[in-house]
Amino acid sequence: MESVVNWFYPLIQAILNGLLTGALYALIGMGMALIFGVMRIVNFTHGAFLMLGMYVSYVFFLKTGINPYLGFMVSGAILFVIGYAVYMGLLRRIPGQVDFMVILVTLGLALIITDGVQLVFGADYHQINLPLVARNFRLGTQIFVNAPWLLSFVIALVLAVALYLVVTHTMFGRAARAIAQNPYPSPLMGINVNRVQAISFGIGAAAAGVAGALLLPVFYLYPGVGSQFELKSFVMVVLGGMGSIQGAAIAGLVLGVVESLTSLYWGNEWALAVDFVIFILVLSLKPSGIFGSQRA
C-alpha cells in the first residue's frame, strides 16, 4: 500500500495537472491550426498575440478590477479586431501571397508587437494576485485540483468545443474548410476568400488572446512570454496534422500530459526539449500528424 501511494498518486496528479494545462494549450493550438488550415501559413505572430491578450486583461484588471476569468472576453474581442486588421492591412497585401514572404511578415510583426509592448510597459515581470489562486479542491486524500486551473480548464474546454462547432456547423466554417481543402475553386463557389481568411486570422488571434488572459492569474507577465507557447503551438499543429483543429486540440491535451510527466520524472527544464524531440520525430516519421486526418 505504501509503495502504491509513492508512485501512483504523483502520477495521477501529474496527469491531471497535464490535462488542466493541456486545455489551454489546446485553445492556443486550435487557433494556430485554424490559421494554418485556411491560409497555409505558419503564424509566427501567435505568441505575440497571446502576450497581447495577457497585457489586455492585465490592464483591464488594473483599471476595473474585473478578473481575467471575465476579462478574457475583452482580450478575445480586442485580439479578434487586431487579427482581422492585421490580415486586411498587411497579410492581404503581400505580393503573390508567397509563403516565404508571409512567414517573414508574421515574424516582423511579432518583433514589432513584442518590442512595442516592451517600450510601453517595460521589460519587468508583472503578476496579479487573485485570492482564488491559493484555493485547492481535494479529490480523495492525495489529489489536489488548483481552482484557477480548473476554472481556466472549463472555460477553455467550452470555447474549444464552441470553436469546433463553428468550424463544423456554420456557413463560415464550411467556407473555411472549403478553402483549406482547395483555395482555387472556392471563389467560384461564391466564397469571399479574403473575408473568410481575415475572420479566421481574427479568430486564431482571439483564441491566443483568450488563452493568454486565462494564463494571467497563474503565470508571470513579460513581453517575451508568448514565445514558449508559440513554439508549443507549432508542435501541436504538427502533431495534430497541419490544419486539423480537432487534431490540434487533442495534441494540446497530450502535450500537457507529456510535459507534466516529463517534469515529474526528469525535471521541468526538459519539458520543452521533449516537446521538440517528439515534434522532430513526428515530422520525420509521420508528417501528416498523429491525431489529424489532413494530408501534409
Binding site: V105, L107, L109, L111, I112, D115, L119
Partner: peptide
C-alpha cells in the same frame, strides 16, 4: 532594449 522593433518595421 526595444531595438528589435526597427527590425520588425523594416522587415514588414
Amino acid at each position: 532594449e526595444a531595438h528589435l522593433l526597427i527590425y520588425g518595421v523594416l522587415v514588414v
